[in-house]
């Protein structure tokens, strides 16, 4: 039981990761795929953010009397990763729009029947 409770943040991460991954693989709709990708990425952000927490530590701002801080570096890192994630989503969605224009559909099975099978 303690395995679940002590590491609850990781369980959440694992659940989100798998859920996102599953959506990416199984969704037929391209927009849903992008959403799945987002969930998948977000889980990793959570992993980074939660690992920066030092038990008993506060936010890393110099305040008198506080000696223990959480690690700020993962948060900074994940800021960058979020930007990357937003950019990916943007590129993905714009591709979806162009696919919609070109094929008239964003359902994978519909346009795959039309041509491009490799």
């Amino acid at each position: 039981m303690s395995v679940i409770v002590d590491y609850y943040n990781y369980w959440i991460v694992v659940f989100l990761m798998m859920a996102g991954f599953y959506v990416v693989i199984s969704a037929n709709n391209l927009v849903k795929k992008v959403v799945g990708l987002n969930i998948f990425q977000t889980s990793v952000f959570m992993l980074y953010i939660s690992m920066g927490k030092v038990s008993g530590g506060t936010a890393p701002i110099i305040i008198e009397g506080v000696t223990q801080y959480s690690n700020p570096l993962p948060h900074v890192l994940i800021l960058t990763a979020i930007v990357v994630g937003v950019a990916t989503t943007a590129v993905g969605l714009s591709l979806v729009i162009r696919i919609k224009h070109a094929y008239g559909t964003v359902e994978e099975n519909e346009f795959q029947n039309e041509d491009d099978a490799i």
Partner: peptide, 30 residues
């Protein structure tokens, strides 16, 4: 027009790959 679906597939796979690397690096950092 087939370049669009190809690019989309590339994007999905590429992002999964990159995110895997991100997870790995995170674990190492941990």
């Amino acid at each position: 027009r087939r370049c669009l679906t190809a690019a989309f597939r590339y994007l999905i796979m590429g992002t999964i790959g990159a995110t895997f690397i991100l997870i790995g690096v995170g674990l190492l950092y941990m």
